[in-house]
Design a protein around this nucleic acid. Structure first.
Lengths: 361, 361
DNA sequence: TTGTAGGCGTTATCAA
DNA sequence: TTGATAACGCCTACAA
């Protein structure tokens, strides 16, 4: 007998033990039809007895696919990335795939993509907020789903419904009794859609439409969750402006910030100005950063569950392109869906409440 | 010429273009010595021109190693996991390795390990807090580093210096002027060492050693960062006990909790009892959970940087076993270091301060 | 210093 | 229904 001492068993060993050829073993493993049940049983028994496992590399070599799906991100330390990873992994596991991860600085994005693509990826999920330019580096042969791709981007993408979320948040404040809702806008990708949702809600409700305050947001939404850097001045300045307007007689009872960072600045500014939240002013954020639940008061905000976003991205990635006539040249063209819009859900907490009574009833 | 139309170039193509054999190309790629510089230049030029990349699967097939390192965890949604991932990935990238990730429920740990090990891993980092039993599933041929393995566990491991951290935290409180420091103990793995560090600091300072309060911690430290579940009752009960003791005349001016969760409960209980933190009682936690910085008041705590822990784990994993006489049978036996102890650093924030003045000076 | 031959473990194609 | 044989792309001997 050939020496099979240290090495782990291979297909040939299983075949010999089952008294068949290695081909038959392969067929059993790949669920080919036309195998006599009793043959299959013998093969399975041999597999179990030997503790045999297929060699992934050999399989990938001949298959040209490794059943590996890559995740490429420029924001590995963003809390939403971690949460998305959980969803991605869950979907991948269900599909029998394994997750390859690369977190990298934007400058090294291309190099990291190379490294990832080198592993015969079956597909790739890109968590790359920021500018369109960065995404160019991710163009690869394996199909790629970009999470929250900019509107212009033509790739497969899963997006959170920013506009709908802002709409719902505004609606929530109006329903609490506020005559209108002020807004501090941001400049990060996706913030514009939030501003639109806010305006739309006001318009439909026939509420006054105050001008949005510019948040001078410097793209800090992609920063680490520990709040390092960023500093004040974000929503803080806007908060002081609004407090001043209120002192001057304007009716400012509810403010929707373009993101939780800005909302935090608002909270500070209002507290400094002696305004109680939510007693005198309600504040809502957007994005549901982890700390939002632990602020004083806990922040009402909204977000799409990052895990769900991740799951959806994988499902979109792994969905078989519809087999239409002439399919094959460009699989992405043959899909039924190339962009998914995920609902944004409200997280109502303590920072929003009814407006102060204007006069005793 | 053989048809080379759609397919990506292989080593043979490079060889033909450079006018050498594919062996020479392989030698260049693997930095073998004894290649004429001009030959190497031609090869490199051909590689660049063709945009050639080695096929990882073929390489792994013959090499029996994929330059892939696995990360296996039962707590994929723990914030420290995300932070560790960043460090792991950084170290891996520097070493030219790629990261394979599997997050899973404890029950499926063995299956996930199987799936991971199936990819010819070069090594594995296990983020598996909790019971020793779970770790048994991770026993695999590839060398594995367990992060924060239980003391008894014999594998390669990287541990945070729990004892030293608790010592430093206690020292910090004593230095602020507190006569002694109370302690709420926990039951999660690693908590016992924290209690030891606390006691040691008191003893060395000659401070009174109050009995530790049992925190009745139900292992919530492994839960998600959003605080779902866990509920009150953790440190809350202990806080009420301490507040009562204080009301009864005992000098309780500083409390070290076994973790941030317990500390949060303490904060609630003290606030309920009308005690100002840190005005009347100082509170310190342990673990630096992300929300600690955003509590009111922000929590003084301590932790080893998870990213650093991750980096250290990878370095330990990839460190070549020292080549001693008789090496080879069990590589782990031949290492200079099998357990690394990482420093725990203080994060002093607003929840600790000097004790209230006993009498006017 | 370079080239030739063989095999890594699997899947696909043919023939039986 | 099953078995032989040839790839898949690379690396490690050995030969030149």
């Amino acid at each position: 007998m050939p020496e099979r001492r240290g090495r782990s068993p291979v297909m040939h060993d299983v075949a010999r033990l089952a008294g068949v050829s290695h081909q038959t073993v392969s067929r059993v493993l790949n669920a080919h039809r036309g195998i006599r049940p009793e043959t299959e049983a013998r093969v399975r028994a041999a597999i179990a007895e030997l503790g045999y496992r297929r060699n992934t590399s050999a399989r990938a070599l001949v298959t040209h696919s490794s059943r590996l799906v890559g995740v490429l991100t420029t924001v590995p330390d963003h809390p939403d990335t971690a949460r998305a990873l959980v969803g991605i992994e869950r979907a991948l596991r269900a599909a029998g795939r394994t997750l390859l991860f690369a977190g990298t600085a934007p400058e090294e994005l291309a190099a990291s993509a190379e490294r990832l693509f080198g592993h015969a990826l079956e597909g790739c999920v890109a968590l790359v907020p920021g500018q369109e330019g960065e995404l160019a580096a991710v163009k690869g042969p394996p199909p790629t789903v970009v999470v929250d791709a900019p509107p212009a981007h033509a790739a497969l993408t899963v997006r959170a419904d920013q506009r709908g979320g802002a709409y719902a948040l505004t609606r929530h404040l109006l329903d609490l009794g506020h005559r209108t809702v002020h807004h501090v806008a941001g400049t990060a990708p996706g913030h514009a859609a939030r501003t639109e949702g806010w305006r739309q809600a006001l318009r439909e409700a026939g509420a006054p439409e105050p001008e949005a305050v510019a948040g001078a947001e410097t793209g800090t939404e992609t920063e680490s969750g520990t709040g390092a850097g960023s500093g004040p001045g974000t929503g803080h300045t806007a908060g002081l402006v609004l407090a001043a307007r209120r002192a001057a007689g304007e009716e400012v009872t509810a403010v929707l910030a373009a993101d939780d960072h800005i909302a935090l600045g608002l909270l500070h500014a209002f507290t400094e100005s002696g305004l109680r939240v939510p007693g005198q002013v309600s504040v809502a954020g957007f994005g549901d950063r982890p700390e939002a639940a632990h602020l004083c008061p806990a922040l009402t905000t909204a977000s799409a569950d990052p895990a769900e976003v991740g799951e959806a991205a994988v499902r979109l990635l792994l969905a078989e392109p519809e087999e239409r006539e002439g399919a094959g040249a460009n699989p992405e063209q043959d899909r039924a869906v190339t962009a998914l819009l995920l609902p944004v859900r409200l997280r109502v907490r303590r920072s929003t409440g009814p407006p102060p009574a204007r006069r005793p009833r």
